[in-house]
Simulated assay, not measured.
Amino acid sequence: MDTRVLNYFLTVAKTGNVTKAANKLHITQPTLSRQISDLEKQLNITLFDRTNRHLRLTKAGTFFKKRAELILELVSQTEKDIHTQESELSGIIRIGCVESSASTWLMKIIKKMNHHFPNVQFDIYTANGDDLKEKLDQNSLDLALLLEPIEAKKYNYLPLPIHDTWGIITTKDDELSKKKAITTDDLSQIPLAISARSLVRNELAQLLDLNINKLKIIATHNLASNPLQLVKAHMTYLLGIDGILTLHHDPDLTFIPLIPKTTTSHIIAWKKNTYLSPLTKKFLKLISDELNQK
């Protein structure tokens, strides 16, 4: 399948109009229409709903759009990786990162890599573990900094000696801020914002012997930055790790650990049975050396 045609298709999908897309691509409208028609025949599907003047993707077209974007991204990354092998070490490392204290550590490693190899660039993507693992599976990321637990059968990984503690984040003027620790009974009596990840919830439930269904959950989230605003508005408490405040330091907020003490560890993961560029291998070597020194 010609990547040029994939680019034609994505341009039409973005503009919703063949004429506008043709102008943007600097080709004629009949040529572009013929290329899209040939693509549909090749795939034996209808990519666009042509019932009105503005082209809309069909269900099959929406699916194909995601795959076309992934294919072009992989082609582009492959070209960059080949260039990396044939010239001075340069290129892009695509790193996914959760919000935790370990991300601060990772940024220091990135700084070291930049010091040794100033031509290297970093594409840093912040998200929760589910999103990061999906992008690893799609080869949209080279590496990901994740909180445990993960499905170890799918990934290679390096364990990191960095641990975050679970607890609640609240305002310093809140009544609970005077407590040294939060019990499971406390959790069942207060409104909470909690991670949307079922894997995290199940892990907490098991460690704390806690019935998640009995909690008063006001909001779920994939990243903690916005729910922290609900905490500041005295609407809810954030059930999360202390590393969140390490990243989003706010003098009005405080962290109270859970009792019994509950911690989580970190890993650097990459997909099994996948090609690692020399650049990514060099970065992993830097991480490994740093861990061995400690």
Rank of each mutant, 00 (worst) to 15 (best):
L158T: 00
N128M: 07
N23W: 10
P159N: 11
E99P: 03
H249K: 14
N292K: 11
I124N: 01
L89P: 01
E79S: 11
K41S: 14
K59S: 10
I267S: 01
A21I: 05
I82P: 00
G61W: 02
E134L: 07
T280L: 01
F64G: 02
Y125H: 13
I93K: 00
S87F: 07
P30F: 02
E86S: 05
L238I: 12
H115R: 11
I110H: 01
N226G: 04
M1N: 14
T274R: 08
L145A: 03
T184P: 03
A127T: 03
I45W: 06
A144S: 12
E86V: 05
K180W: 06
N156Y: 05
I168N: 00
E175Y: 13
L258F: 05
S33E: 08
H248K: 13
T236K: 01
L258H: 01
A196P: 13
S76K: 15
N23G: 10
L158M: 05
V200P: 01
I95Y: 04
K272F: 14
Y155G: 08
K294W: 07
L146P: 11
I256C: 06
A181E: 13
G129A: 09
L39C: 09
K172V: 12
R53E: 15
T46R: 08
N119I: 04
A196S: 15
K135Y: 06
L230N: 12
R4E: 15
I212G: 01
L89N: 00
I217T: 13
